[in-house]
């Protein structure tokens, strides 16, 4: 059996990209995004992409670079307010956009990965989000039907992983990555630290390797912070 471990992002993407495909990309804002894979996808020039991701990066970083290169045809997201180019492309009709409430987006991906084609949620009832969708009453409350979501490719980012594809995320960089890992026909994980098999705590693996087809340690991680926010250090008590 061929191993899952790849040399770098370009090798990991070999043979899986095609024009018009749907790609899920993990991350919340710039936190926990597969930045090496995004850069490598830009290099390939693959186009007419539908990208499922909570946000669309910022101008010049994250998924924002695929907007600049004109490779994205449609975004499925919950919030894109950090990106001026996004707004410009959308308002001029060059970019399609489907807004999903964040929890509905997370659950659609979870359901898709779990083989569940649709579910009912209270979120969005009586709003634009429910227009054209089936609604049904359960126990006296109205719910809207949402579809499970899968993708041709899921690209996720974890902190640590092994050659089996077992993944461990770190702090709030987990976000959408675990569900997306389950919902890709092909799933590629980029990690900060590739560790020998047997060194991960088997009781604390967040994504079991069955979901991961290819894995590589990223060449470098910029891990840019969107909003550095700090507090002043307490004044030293005066003597």
């Amino acid at each position: 059996m061929a191993g899952k471990t790849q040399k770098d992002a370009a090798e990991a993407l070999a043979g899986v990209l095609f024009d018009g495909m749907t790609i899920m990309a993990g991350g919340f804002g710039l936190c926990g995004i597969p930045e090496n894979l995004i850069a490598a996808i830009r290099e390939t020039g693959v186009k007419n992409l539908t990208v499922v991701s909570n946000n669309c990066g910022i101008d010049g970083f994250g998924l924002g670079v695929l907007l600049e290169s004109g490779q994205i045809k449609k975004m499925i997201s919950s919030y894109v307010g950090e990106n001026k180019l996004f707004e410009k492309l959308y308002l001029s009709g060059e970019l399609e956009l489907e807004f999903n409430p964040q929890g509905t987006l997370a659950e659609r991906i979870r359901a898709g990965g779990a083989g569940i084609p649709a579910f009912f949620t209270k979120t969005g009832v009586g709003t634009l989000v429910a227009e054209g969708k089936e609604t049904r009453e359960f126990d006296g409350e109205l719910y809207v039907m949402e579809r499970g979501l899968t993708a041709d490719l899921a690209i996720v980012k974890a902190h640590t992983g092994d050659a089996e594809g077992n993944l461990v995320y770190r702090k709030t960089a987990r976000n959408f990555n675990p569900m997306m890992a389950t919902a890709g026909k092909v799933t590629i994980a980029e990690i900060e630290h590739l560790v020998p098999i047997g060194s991960l705590d088997k009781d604390n693996i967040h994504t079991p390797g069955i979901y991961v087809d290819r894995i590589f340690q990223g060449a470098s991680f910029e891990k840019r912070i969107e909003r550095v926010t700090t507090r002043p250090r307490e004044e030293k008590a005066s003597a």
Binding site: R110, M179, R227, T230
Partner: peptide, 30 residues
């Protein structure tokens, strides 16, 4: 966080850097 102690893997929903407490837990968006 104090200046210089920001962690890119630890942000709030407004994308601001934050800190954890002894009682904190992390989980997926789902």
């Amino acid at each position: 966080p104090y200046e210089g102690e920001e962690d890119a893997d630890l942000i709030n929903a407004g994308k601001q850097t934050i800190t954890e407490l002894d009682s904190s837990s992390y989980f997926s968006s789902a």
